[in-house]
Structures are given as C-alpha cells and as structure tokens.
C-alpha cells in the first residue's frame, strides 16, 4: 500500500517514534539550546506540533525527517529568544558563564562559528546520529552535498583546533 497517497500518520506511530528516538532528539536539541530543560521543551513542542498536524503529514516515512527539521527549527527559535544557556550556537557566552560551560571551549567556539548549514549537518550527524541520506532529507539537499558540507565542516574544525594548540 502506498501510504503517501493515503496521507496522515497515526498517534501510535508518533508515540512509538518518540519512545524509540527520544534520547537522540533530546541530544540534538541540547546541542542547539544548551540546557537540558530547554531541550526537553523543544522536543515536547516538536512532537506536540506533529500530533496536531498529523493529518497533514504525507506519510510515516516523511514523519521522521519532518520531526528532525522541526526540532532544529524550534531549537533555533528558542535559542534566539532566550540566550540564557550556552548552546553550541552561542559560544560567545561561554567565557562569561559561571560553572556551567562544557569542556573544549575552542571547539565550542569553532562549532558556533561554522556557517549555519554546516552546523546543522554536523549536529544531525554527530548528535542525532543520522546518515547522509537522512540528513539530506531533513535539510532538503542531495546526499553528495551532505558529504561535502560535513567534509568542509570537519576540515574547518580541525584547522581551528590545530591552530589553537600551536
């Protein structure tokens, strides 16, 4: 059966996805917003949105990509709205944070300085543990572009870190 034509996803499918992937969604959100509380809020909101709009989603296959994208977007919005915590998108706050910053400040700063597309691809690869195909679906780019984007990001981070060590 072509589920894409039928349209919509069930709440049970969403719940299953939530239970199976929650730690990965949470970690991706945590990378973006920097606080566990805010990250949990982002994931809850993304799934609540999916529940509300489940009849508009075209298939269960598309659902997962849609959710990853929603988590990225909701996280970015939340991160911009209240920069109280130092997510990897706001490394400039690390120096002034007191007792809550993470290790490897140079790397954090380098990640924060990456162009947005590279940073999103990096987060989806390392914290959401998605493969190139899935990252392409989430970001709406070809698999080859994902590979090139990640290659550039990794090279840039290595360069920054090697410079910092010298």
């Amino acid at each position: 059966m072509n589920r894409g034509k039928v349209g919509g996803v069930t709440a049970a499918a969403l719940e299953q996805l939530y239970r199976d992937r929650y730690p990965r969604f949470l970690r991706l959100a945590l990378a973006i917003v920097g606080s566990r509380e805010a990250a949990a809020d982002v994931v809850q909101e993304a799934f609540a949105r999916a529940l509300r709009h489940r009849s508009e989603l075209r298939s269960e296959e598309a659902l997962e990509s849609w959710l990853w994208r929603t988590v990225v977007n909701t996280g970015r919005t939340q991160s911009k709205r209240g920069r109280r915590h130092a997510g990897l998108e706001s490394a400039e706050e690390i120096a002034s944070s007191n007792g809550h910053a993470e290790p490897w400040p140079e790397l954090r700063a380098a990640v924060a300085a990456l162009p947005e597309r590279q940073r999103q691809a990096l987060f989806l690869r390392h914290y959401a543990d998605l493969d190139y195909e899935q990252i392409g679906e989430v970001l709406g780019i070809a698999r080859g572009t994902v590979a090139a984007t990640l290659h550039t990001a990794h090279r840039s981070l290595r360069g920054t870190l090697e410079g910092a060590q010298r």
Partner: peptide, 16 residues
C-alpha cells in the same frame, strides 16, 4: 571531542 561537547542523553525518557 565533538561527542564530549554535548551531554550523553542515552537512557533519557520523555514524557509522552
């Protein structure tokens, strides 16, 4: 190093 930047969330349970 990238792995260490973000707290490991494995085992985290959400609130459906």
């Amino acid at each position: 190093r990238l792995d260490e930047l973000v707290e490991d969330c494995s085992g985290a349970l959400g609130d459906w």
